[in-house]
């Protein structure tokens, strides 16, 4: 390496600034755990609620979604699920997609899809509930 032969005019601190975690390195990991803990009761509630509504008519489904408690739990489940899914998919794409541009493009596309699906689902719940 040719740099080793020349004198570095930059301080060691200057060289690493902006490259390290700046105490934010665990944020993605931590948020993934926080959302997973929140999703534990929400997912179990959601699966069982859906299983109990397989034979429901439109009126019954709308009445169930429209109940304030169900609407709040549903929106919580939707928003936290898509945040967890987006963060998880980001790690998968970071691991398997080669090249900076394809990787960034695929992560941005998946995050955009998660954002849109979360808003679509949440708006649908609100339209029924309000």
């Amino acid at each position: 390496m040719s740099e080793q032969n020349s004198v570095r005019m930059q301080s060691p601190l200057g060289r690493v600034r902006g490259l390290g975690s700046a105490k934010g390195g665990t944020h993605h990991w931590w948020i993934q755990r926080v959302t997973s803990i929140a999703l534990l009761p929400l997912t179990i509630w959601f699966i069982l609620s859906i299983a109990l509504h397989t034979g429901s008519s439109h009126a019954q489904v709308v009445a169930w979604i429209g109940h304030p408690l169900n609407a709040v739990l549903l929106i919580s489940f939707i928003l936290i699920s898509f945040q967890h899914a987006g963060a998880g998919m980001q790690v998968v794409l970071e691991d398997y997609v080669r090249g900076e541009m394809p990787r960034m493009a695929s992560i941005l596309a998946v995050k955009a899809l998660c954002w849109l699906m979360a808003l679509l689902a949440a708006l649908s719940v609100l339209r029924v509930a309000l």
């Binding site: 439109h58 489904v61 899914a85 998660c114 649908s124 719940v125 029924v128």
Partner: peptide
């Protein structure tokens, strides 16, 4: 399963949108 759950959540979005749109869409 994480990836499959992410893809499958599109069905949940569809179901909720259908419920919000009316009886015909839900049917």
């Amino acid at each position: 399963t994480g990836i499959a759950w992410t893809v499958g959540s599109a069905f949940l979005v569809w179901w909720l949108m259908a419920a919000a749109s009316g009886p015909q869409a839900l049917a």
